[in-house]
Design a protein around this nucleic acid. Sequence first.
DNA 1: TTACTTATGTAAAGTGTTTATCATAAGAGG
DNA 2: CCTCTTATGATAAACACTTTACATAAGTAA
Lengths: 377, 377
Amino acid sequence: MDKIARDPMYRLLLDGPPRSSRELEQALGLSRVTAAQRIRALASEGLIVEDGTMASGGGRPARTWRINPHYRNLLGVDIGEEMARVVLFDCGCGVLDEALLPVDLRADPAQTLEALARVADRLARSPKATAKVAGLGMALPAPIDYRQGRVAKPSVMHGWDQIDLRALLSARLGLPVALDNDVNLMCMAEQRLHWPDARHVVFIKAGTGIGCGMITDGHLLRGAFGTSGDIGHIQHTPQPHQLCRCGKEGCVEAHAAGWAIARDLRALGHDCHDARDVMQLYARGAPECRALVNASSRIIGTVSADLVAVLSPELLVLGGTLAGAGEAMLAGIRERVYQRCLPLATERLQICLARGDARLGTQGAAMLVRQILTDPR
Amino acid sequence: MDKIARDPMYRLLLDGPPRSSRELEQALGLSRVTAAQRIRALASEGLIVEDGTMASGGGRPARTWRINPHYRNLLGVDIGEEMARVVLFDCGCGVLDEALLPVDLRADPAQTLEALARVADRLARSPKATAKVAGLGMALPAPIDYRQGRVAKPSVMHGWDQIDLRALLSARLGLPVALDNDVNLMCMAEQRLHWPDARHVVFIKAGTGIGCGMITDGHLLRGAFGTSGDIGHIQHTPQPHQLCRCGKEGCVEAHAAGWAIARDLRALGHDCHDARDVMQLYARGAPECRALVNASSRIIGTVSADLVAVLSPELLVLGGTLAGAGEAMLAGIRERVYQRCLPLATERLQICLARGDARLGTQGAAMLVRQILTDPR
DNA sequence: TTACTTATGTAAAGTGTTTATCATAAGAGG
DNA sequence: CCTCTTATGATAAACACTTTACATAAGTAA
């Protein structure tokens, strides 16, 4: 995107609903003249378009302005443990085209990257594209050194911490590239797209693994070393100790994650390997599965209670594959949170299922590049 | 403070070390001419003064500027469970005069406030005062509705949530007043005064009660309802359940707080009622006391590990009365944190004792009003 | 001492923003 | 229809900041 896109007025319209000239002027603290001038500039460049008029309050109704979604397109990539999703978005995060490809995180990252790059290239030239692609964002299931744009040093994604991921991808594609942890990006997308007024949000992703993203005062909380939100390996220590895939015992994941439920279901004779398999069994109503999911939800509820006590969010959202169990998962979380936290912290707290779909990670990734491309520095 | 004090240049000098014209210019993104002009304006108003010269790098050495601590004075109040401390500061947070007064939080808040106001008035007219008082900050051992400037609704400070604390005090004293939770303010003061480069800090206050303050990305994390940092009532559940003063069982406080240790020591025949008594016994080397303090430190370490996993701070500071046990407290915290957290989260994490003294709360309070008085809005 | 370096002061020209004023546009309500 | 209200456009003077250029101040290194 061009220089003009760094106008804070454009950022405001990217993040929020259409606004009138006066609203923009007040939100940015500009004078009417300057606001109008900047609106003209953005409109003449095709960055924003007229949206409609507001209800009249006894006078001439105000025109509202919104971003032009077809000014540029964006690519969002979400690398999962087995599949990667690549989505072509317009710059309002509307889906234009999409592709899935299998990935093997234990394989050579160079090969995986090349496969991803080919798909990205193909999508950028898709007949459904509405503009040229301005950048690519990528969500990764690993701690990310956000400043450096690479996977943080010791990581589960073997070998990925060795390469300068952002520079490599950017050079290969000829596009600006931004990276972040997948849960962080899901959290950001969920908040920005579905709860724009919430300033303090905890997003729990319960899938094959468990993690959380946090927004405090409207800002994504990344922490000092890119490891924030690592709730999966908080010590839970209920009676039967379980070995976690991280090598420790008694982690939350080892009792409540999709892989742990699958492990327990396999022990009961089911053919079940990941969170998706668990949800299939759950949907079919297998009682053992329901029991395990309920138990999981209470364990996640225990951690949630700690998060609520520490962070005092106004919204706790549950996403990830296990959120497919819906109210059953929420029940366990609510039970523990209301049981353990102060009324003051819970009386106005909302506990909900994520409204975003499986594309949440890619949407967050696209929003991240967009944010960087429109950052005034 | 006057209008000119809202200059971001002044705020920069308030928070940081003395700087040269060039450093100010770069930090604020101004041109040399404008920076010099603003420096002149601030200096002529008496807000800043010349500090000295920097080391020469082969040319004329740069002059450095610092705030004039005697431009205005500030009052900081820290209300504890039994005592309140009122300190008169210069606007660099240097101590000028000080007073302690007993308070009873169960008494009528109006009486306590009047007693406080009298002390504040007296200090403002103290012979040690160097300038007129610009505002008063207050630290309270309760969740605070920061926006409203009052104690959040259901509170342990009975009756205090009924009154418009900020407005009342402000009217009584004829001064701008700001309030916040005591642990938040201690956290802020500790970071700003002693770890200015740390952007992600967890401050644990272990005293008669237990709580924590958090700074993420340089900003104090207050949460949505003023209850953030409530780690004292996280469920700990080791074997012998203990009734907490909050009415629940198995809270961290019920096992690790000063009041809980005092309770256990009383059961062993010691005359011990609060954290200070515990530290006296500890200093005298009572073995039961040492054992209990060690156990407490491990419990606090357990919560600390959760905080480190979730927030990924670069610095974890222990303050409060129990921090008087020094390395013994740190040992238990370090043990649990290193045992339970990812190496990535701990390898560069510092775990230290607070450097601030008993005036930390009042310093934070003074910094809070100062921050508000110099906020450009 | 001289040459070089960096810091600081001052003035002029140019850019962008604000404030103020006047004019026009487009709705509601009578 | 007219009046009232609010939105928007155009313009000019005032203001703040930046850039540029030149001069001076105060150190270091030889």
